[in-house]
Every structure is written in C-alpha cells, then in structure tokens.
Design a protein around this nucleic acid. Sequence first.
RNA 1: GGCCGCAUCUUCUAACGGUUAGGAAAUCGGGUUCUCAUCCCGGAAAUCGGAGUUCGAUUCUCCGUGCGGUCACCA
Length: 475
Amino acid sequence: MKPVRTRYAPSPTGFQHVGNIRAALYPWLIARQTNGVFILRIEDTDQAREVEGAVESMRETLNWLGMDWDEGPDMPGEFGPYIQSERKANYAIWAQRMADEGTAYADVRTPQQLQALRDTAKAQKKPFLAREYRPENPPKWEPGMPLRFKSTPQAYHWHDAIMGDLSAGEEAVDDFILMKADGLPTYNFAHIIDDNDMQISHVIRGIEYIASMPKYLNLYEALHFEKPIFAHAPHIMNDQGNKKLSKRDGAKSLLSYRDEGILPEAMLNFLASMGWNDGTEQEIFSREELIAKFSLERVQRSGARFDEQRLHWMNGSWIRGLDINSIYTLCQGYWPDTAKHYDEMYKKAVLGLVQERLKFLAELPELTALFFEDLPTDLNLIDANKQLKKFSHAELKVYLEHAMGSLEQSDFSVEDLTTRLNALLESTGQKPGVLFSLIRIASTQAPFSPALADTLHVLGKERSIARITNCLESL
RNA sequence: GGCCGCAUCUUCUAACGGUUAGGAAAUCGGGUUCUCAUCCCGGAAAUCGGAGUUCGAUUCUCCGUGCGGUCACCA
C-alpha cells in the first residue's frame, strides 16, 4: 500500500468559505487518520483572478481550525516548490515531451476562431468536440504557444471513493488546452503533473471536477502516470438549496464565523457532519473522534444545504462543554465596553451564569450588559409583564418594599438569598411568577436574565439594593 | 440542449430486501418555585411518481419527473 499523501490545492482568489474548506477537511482527515502527509499547494496559474492576501487569509483559516499541513509553501518538503507559478520548468518539460511524442499539438487559433467553431456546432445542434476540429497543419510547438492535448477517445468505467462506480462514454473525452499563451499551464494539466510529482495518493476535491474525469483519465494514460484514488465530494448548497455555496452567492468567509465567536471545534464538527455520519446517532464529534471515525465511503452522495441555525446549536453545545477558564480566555475581546473596569473573578462569575445561554461569543454584550452597567429604569418591563400588569404600581411597591426589608438583612450568598426569597413567598402569599418577576425586573431592568438568586449574588448587595431602591422611587 | 450525477420529515441524516421508517436542528405543547437559556417529557412532520423483480421494495432494475454539476488559453 502506497503511503497516504493528500493535498488541498486552492487558488488564491479570495477568502475561504464553508464550501472551500470542506474540500480541505476531507483530505486532512484522511491524512491524519492514516499517519499520512497533508500537503498545501497553491494553484496560482490564473494570474488574472489572483487576489492580494488570499494565501495569507487561507493560511489563517486553516490555522484557526487546527488543520495543519506537513508540506506547503512555508513547509519545505522534498517535492517542492508548492506554488505552481514556481514550478513552470516542470510543466515545460512535460509539455515539450508531449509535443515531441505527438500526444499534444500547438493550437494557435484565436479565441474568436474557436468560439466561431463552437457557435457553428451549436447552431447545428451538435455537441462541440475540439478533437473533431484539429488544425490540419499545426506549427511545431514552442514555449509561448498554446498547447492542446491530443486525446484518444474511449469509454471509461472508474471507481470514486465517495460516488461509487462511475462511467462515461467516449464523447466525454476531448482535446483540451494544456499550456496557455502566457506560458503557464492550465489547471487541467498542472494538477496532474503536480499530483504525480508529489506522489499524491488520494485526489479529494469537489464534485465539479467529476465531469472532467474522463479527460483526466485519458491524460493520465497519455502521460503513463499511475492513477491515484479519486474522491469527489458533493457541494454544500446555499440555504435555499438551489446552488452550490459560492462567494458570488453571498457565502460568508470562514473567518467571519470565527469573529462572531464560532469555536473551531464546532465549525469542524459542523463541516464534517454535513454529508457525513458514522452510522450511529452521535452528533457531536471532537477533532480526534473525527480523525478516528471519518471515512470517504460514508460521505453522502447528495449535496447538503448550509443551515446556520444548526451551526449555532452545535456551537452552543460546544460552549456549554467548556470549563470556565477556557471560556474566559475565548471571550477576551467579546465583552461589552463597560466590562473593562471589572476584574477577572467578577467576569468569570458572570460567564458562569450566561455560559449555557451563549450560542456564539458575539452575543456576550447583549447577554451580560446588565452586570456591568445600571440600565435605565423601564417601567414598561413591568407593565408589559403578564403576571405583573394585573397589579397597580402602588401594590407592587408594597411588595417590593417588603422584599427590600428582607434583602437588606442578607449577606447575599446564594444560599441565604434563596432562603429569603422562599420566605418572602410565604410572607406575601404571592406566587413566584409575581414576586420574583418583580424583583428580577427591579434589579436588572432587563427583559431576561439568569436565575434570580444567582443574578443578585453576582451583582452584589450594594448594587442590587441601589437598583431596587431606584425602581421603588419610580413606582 | 449534450454528457455525468443525485433523490427519506422544513433542514442535516439513520435504516444486511422484512422496523409502529430511527435520531438531531427548527417548530408546537408540558415540566424544572419568575423571564431567557439549559435539561427532561410529549406532539406534529418524510421514503418524488409509475411500472417491474420478489412471499415481501426506502433499499434492486427500467421509465418518467425534479434538482445539481459540467460543457474556457477559470479553477
């Protein structure tokens, strides 16, 4: 068995979104579970589409997710360089060899001429096959001229590790451009040369390449290259389910999910479980479990729709599993401005109360504002409350004053507060829905908050009493 | 349009040819001494259609239909 060597080979054309990165996740998982090698290769043969900073942002994305690579632009290996524009000499050698052998020919026709041919075929309702329009006396190929593969039409049956047994007729095999007029190879040529040079064992990529497989298979044979294992993963579709996820279609950068406070573990879990499961009812998988359990054979053959709600649920689940120190570290940078005057111990106490409510870290300010600043008294909260609106302000004031009497005696430990709150229920003869709502609103001025005794405890005696006094004055 | 592929609740999905078609998200109802959330209990919710093979089909075959991908000197 050949050593496992997989690769992720993005083009530096912009940020990485959910669709792209899943094409990196599968080969990474395969490499890691087999103690194989994961390679990062930059496919920058289309200079026109290149975007400044794209490589850096891609690197940042992979780092965030903890997807490390063993060979790449910044990790020299014995098969480098790992940037295609630096491998021109390699392609030139193979191009020359094919031209000499006659398995490729110079094609100096202009794009306009080619397009005219296609248009004619289309007008005649005939499929256009470049191999049916080979130039009669092509010039001898020289670097700088477009070079076109001279295919040998035949039908193919092949196996795909995800899609299963596939086949296509010979009409799917055609001549295609290997070298462009700018001296650079096309993807179709470069990736096959590189995969061979780099001894890639598994070519794992998106399903958009499946239509080209017959052509690639034909080229492998012309080159006498050994074929790797192929695996084509279905697309992740947009939330309407009608298109593959793409930047044009509004797909978000993966880094923007990081910025919103999605945990890398959750993102990895989510990405992997869209289109894959281990056959059990397990939904939450750690990085290690994913590495141990993932298999291409169990990847779904149909596209999956991107469901952000499910991502949030999964992220909340990961957040709940964190210990307080970890979550405190992660929350740096997400606190409301008003939190800057508070110490670590206080913030950790607050986190303890809101942790189970957090779906993503950027929600922190709205969930915790009440712990860091006194919100303006808002009697609407009382008037709109379905338990409290039945009472007059005067009646509520009596209850609240009564509660104050007891709270002023409290040491504000959770235990004492709980005892007192319960006692208050008896002495007023009131339901918790009324009494606790009243105290909660008076002391937080927030539409919702964590459990009452816990909240009062963290807020502290001085602050709680002051807020209730304030509310009392407004009633 | 040609070629290739896919098809289970709204969504992500499970189910050696034999199951009351399972789980999770979302949603609805109830409980956990207030709210929000967590947690627990419960409800509603699916095999695209038609033939065929078979004692028996979500599962195998064929035909429709729908959806996706692809037909560049882009990847």
